[in-house]
């Protein structure tokens, strides 16, 4: 797995192939999972996963330095979605292993911050995101980019090819909407 595979996939995406994007997600997913597993290997007290660091690292590993913005866009989109899957998978496994332990608290302040922390109930967030997907898929992409891939407002705007102002508005609403659901 390496830069050339990514490039091929990105070219295929640019050429309009539908499945190529899914393939990219798969590729990135496996890479992220491999890296994340390295970090999440054992349940540790005080262990915090750094998805954004993982995504950066995956980017460094997988992408050529010459990859242009168009492709970066695809990559980060894929990486964000892949990262979300990695985290949710992990949370599901961990949840299954838990025996009636208290659910993690659900404060959404962490959505303000780049890095998801132990505060957010990932599975509940996952459900909420799935629900949001029914209404406004673009917002979900945005949440993925900001929350799971850790992009700033400007970067997310670049990645989604919209203006930062639009991103800000979408983000404000999405965040409030999610928080409303997670508070239940």
């Amino acid at each position: 797995m390496g830069a050339s595979q990514i490039t091929v996939l990105l070219n295929r995406i640019n050429a309009g192939e539908r499945h190529a994007y899914n393939d990219l997600i798969e590729l990135v997913y496996h890479e992220l999972r491999r890296m994340a597993v390295g970090q999440m290997r054992f349940e540790l007290i005080g262990h915090t996963l750094q998805p954004t660091a993982l995504v950066s690292e995956a980017w460094m590993r997988l992408a050529d330095s010459g990859t242009d913005w168009q492709n970066r866009r695809h990559f980060f989109g894929a990486a964000a979605e892949a990262m979300r899957r990695v985290l949710v998978d992990h949370a599901r496994r961990r949840d299954a292993a838990k025996r009636g332990g208290g659910l993690q608290r659900v404060t959404l302040t962490n959505l303000d911050v780049d890095v998801p922390g132990a505060d957010v109930d990932l599975l509940a967030l996952e459900d909420a995101l799935n629900e949001l997907e029914q209404h406004n898929p673009r917002m979900v992409r945005l949440v993925e980019l900001r929350y799971f891939a850790g992009l700033s407002i400007e970067e997310a705007a670049e990645a989604m090819d919209v203006s930062p102002a639009t991103v800000k508005r979408d983000w404000s609403f999405a965040r409030a909407w999610l928080k409303e659901r997670l508070d239940d």
Partner: peptide, 17 residues
Amino acid sequence: ERVLRLLRHHSDTAARE
């Protein structure tokens, strides 16, 4: 009511930010 709640969530978060 729903919108008000959303707005409050927003301003709380923004405030804390």
